[in-house]
C-alpha cells in the first residue's frame, strides 16, 4: 500500500490487515501511553484545508506515538490564504522532506490528485475530501464494531448497520458504506429523501426513509451530524421535525438488538440527531471511537511508512 485514498478501492485483505495491526497496537499501548521508536526520523505533514479538531489531533497523536516528526499546516493563516495552489504547496512540502502527507480538503478528489499528480513522492492519507471519502473514520468505525461485536477479529459478516442522517453531504457515510460492505456487513441508509443522493446505483446499501422500521433489531446505529453549515438550502422543514423523525432517543434504541451499539463520528449536535441520554449511555461507543481512531491511524501510518520506501 502506498496511499490510503478511499475505502471503495481498499481490498478486503488490506482492510483486515489495518484492523489487525490496530488491534495489536491497542494492546501494546494499553495503560500508560507508550512511545514507540518505529517511525523515528520520518516526517508527517498534516495538511488541513478545512477545520478539524479530532481528526487532526488524532493523526498527530498517532504519528507522535510512533516517534515521527509532525508538521502542521492549516490553510488559515498560511500562504494558501494568499492564493497558493495545491501544487505549489505540495512542492514546498516535498522540498521540506515530507515522507507522508495527511490531507483534508473541501474539494472531492483532492487527496487523489495529490497522490497521482507526480508532484510529490510522499505517501498520501486522505483525511476527508469534500463529500467524497474519509477512509480512516470508516476504518475506526469498523474497528470499533469488530471489537464490540466480534471480539476484535475476523470480518463483519452478518452485522446489520444502520447509518442515519445527512448521507448526501457525508463522506463518513460513503466511506463506511464501502468498507462495511467489503467486510461483509449489511448496511441500511436512513434519511429524509432530500438528504439521500439522487443516484445510488452501485452503492452496496439499502435505503429506508423510516428510522423506526430500519432500527428494528439493528446491531449498529451510526448517527451522522446534521451539517448545519451545509444547510443553506432547505433540506427539511425544521430542526424539530428532523429530530422527531430521525433523531435517536431511548425508545428507538430499545428497538435495537440487545447487544446493539450506538456510534457517532462527532462532533455531535446533542438534542438534534442524538439525545444526551443516548450519547452518554451504556451503548454509546462515541468515546471509544475517538480512542480507537488513534490506534487505527497508527496502524495506517505504520503500514504506509514503516517499511522500505521503495518496493523491494
Amino acid at each position: 500500500m502506498k496511499h490510503l485514498l478511499s475505502t471503495q478501492t481498499l481490498e478486503k485483505q488490506d482492510a483486515l490487515l489495518i484492523l489487525d495491526t490496530a488491534e495489536k497496537l491497542s494492546r501494546i499501548s494499553d495503560g500508560p501511553i507508550k512511545k514507540l521508536p518505529t517511525l523515528r526520523g520520518r516526517t508527517i505533514v498534516n495538511l488541513f484545508y478545512e477545520d478539524s479538531t479530532r481528526t487532526k489531533i488524532s493523526f498527530e497523536a498517532a504519528a507522535k506515538r510512533l516517534s515521527a516528526d509532525v508538521l502542521n499546516f492549516s490553510a488559515k493563516g498560511s500562504s494558501v490564504s494568499k492564493g497558493e495552489s495545491l501544487k505549489d504547496t505540495a512542492l514546498t512540502l516535498k522540498a521540506m522532506g515530507a515522507d507522508a502527507i495527511v490531507v483534508r480538503h473541501p474539494a472531492s478528489g483532492a487527496a487523489h490528485l495529490l497522490a497521482n499528480s507526480g508532484w510529490i513522492d510522499a505517501n498520501v492519507v486522505n483525511a476527508g475530501d469534500g463529500t467524497h471519502e474519509h477512509p480512516t473514520q470508516a476504518l475506526l468505525d469498523a474497528f470499533t464494531i469488530r471489537r464490540q461485536l466480534r471480539e476484535g477479529s475476523g470480518d463483519l459478516s452478518g452485522v446489520r448497520v444502520v447509518i442515519v442522517g445527512d448521507v448526501l453531504h457525508s463522506r463518513v457515510a460513503r466511506s463506511n458504506v464501502w468498507l462495511l460492505h467489503t467486510l461483509g456487513a449489511k448496511v441500511t441508509l436512513v434519511a429524509p429523501p432530500t438528504l439521500i443522493p439522487n443516484n445510488l446505483s452501485g452503492w452496496p446499501a439499502q435505503i429506508d426513509y423510516n428510522l423506526d422500521n430500519a432500527i428494528e433489531d439493528a446491531d449498529v446505529v451510526m448517527m451522522l451530524r446534521v451539517q448545519q453549515e451545509r444547510m443553506q438550502a432547505s433540506y427539511f422543514p425544521s430542526i424539530r421535525e428532523y429530530s422527531r423523525r430521525y433523531g435517536l432517543d431511548i425508545s428507538r434504541v430499545n428497538k435495537m438488538h440487545k447487544t446493539g451499539i450506538v456510534m457517532h463520528p462527532g462532533p455531535m449536535n446533542r438534542g438534534i440527531e442524538i439525545s444526551s441520554e443516548i450519547a452518554d449511555g451504556a451503548r454509546s461507543m462515541i468515546v471509544q471511537q475517538v480512542q480507537n481512531g488513534v490506534y487505527v491511524r497508527m496502524a495506517v501510518l505504520y503500514l504506509l511508512l514503516g517499511g522500505a520506501t521503495e518496493e523491494l
Binding site: L17, D20, T21, K24, L25, R27, I28, L36, P37, T38, L66, Y302, L303, L304, L305, G306, G307, A308, T309, E311, L312
Partner: peptide, 20 residues
C-alpha cells in the same frame, strides 16, 4: 512482539505485527 523496535524496518516492506 518486537517488530516495532527492529532496526531493519526500512530494509523490507512493512511487516505484519505479531501477538504481544
Amino acid at each position: 512482539d518486537i517488530t516495532l523496535h527492529r532496526d531493519d524496518l526500512r530494509l523490507k516492506a512493512p511487516r505484519p505485527l505479531q501477538e504481544t
